[in-house]
Write a protein that binds this DNA or RNA. Structure first.
Lengths: 171, 171
DNA sequence: GTGGCTGCAAAGCTTTTGCATGTTC
DNA sequence: GAACATGCAAAAGCTTTGCAGCCAC
């Protein structure tokens, strides 16, 4: 399998320009107001090639709008994730979680209740064979995180969707 | 690829018993004192099939040792991770990190400085094809997290290992 | 003009740290 | 007995929330 490669800068550039161009239209469609703060946050987010923390985004935003509050950046980033404008890299970030199983294995995570279960998938480790490094990174090991919905949360989501007046919600 | 499966309880049981049996010997080998608190934590960790938070471990430990402090559980779990007795499921847990790229893609993470870079690996998405669910979990999407060391940290680690162990650098 | 958005400050959580005391080897 | 581990409480981070004022639509 020889498809493993870092996403490069030209790709990133083209993607960002396109997303930025669509941003206002997407907000309108979702009924989200287009404010200077939201524009500044999406710009900072798309400009960054690291995966920035709220603090870093806030610092970038403040270079042009020094008055912007950290709390607002938090609120905006959360909205963006719900709206599909951004993705939280750290699904399980709120509390540290530990695993007594130190053998190589992978995880299924319920995106709603954050329950985690181990899975076995021996072929995944092979993905790294023959690729000791990637750009500046020396590869050590890999683990697959499968996002899922557990039974209990499937039922809860269905109930919520039928009971509650529907927002435009795309999966 | 038909190897995807949840790790089941019998496997977990056997593994835990073995690890627990080796625990004291492993501590001796590493020069870590065997205290009642550390024993209670490793027991709680191996007994759990969820991936418990520090708080949950502490609650489990307190059922037998009501005096144990949450700070101690934190300290012990961190030690266990360094000693290879446990694994932190949430590598990037300290701060929330966001990604402006909402297309399916994967990540390389430097385990030392936590720098993250996007990677493309189209075949990985195919791992889930033909497996809509696993046990109680309805699968949605997956993302591969490759643990690695970036150039800067490779150099830093090498320096640390050859020089005497000074840990005076942070960026 | 109105409903939603923002800034500020305070509160809420999780995790870490300092220090005196207690334990392991 | 010496070095290390623990408990407690306080501090340190990150994130969320309440509320008055402001702005996009």
């Amino acid at each position: 399998m020889r498809e493993l490669r870092l996403l490069d800068r030209p790709w990133h550039e083209r993607y960002s320009v396109q997303r930025l161009g669509e941003f206002v239209a997407r907000c309108r469609k979702r009924g989200i107001a287009v404010t200077p703060q939201r524009l500044a946050v999406i710009q900072a987010l798309l400009a960054s090639e690291n995966h920035p923390s709220t603090d870093e985004i806030c610092a970038a935003v403040r270079r042009k709008h020094p008055h912007v509050s950290l709390a607002t950046v938090h609120r905006i980033l959360n909205e963006f994730c719900e709206a599909g404008e951004a993705r939280k890299v750290t699904l399980l970030h709120d509390v540290a979680r530990y695993d007594g199983n130190v053998e190589p294995h992978h995880h299924v995570v319920c995106v709603r209740c954050k329950r985690v279960h181990d899975i076995e998938m021996p072929d995944v480790e092979k993905l790294l064979e023959g690729t000791p490094s990637l750009g500046q990174f020396a590869l050590l090991r890999c683990s697959l995180e499968i996002e899922a919905l557990c039974k209990r949360c499937q039922i809860a989501e269905k109930r919520e969707r039928t009971n509650r007046p529907h927002r435009a919600e795309m999966d």
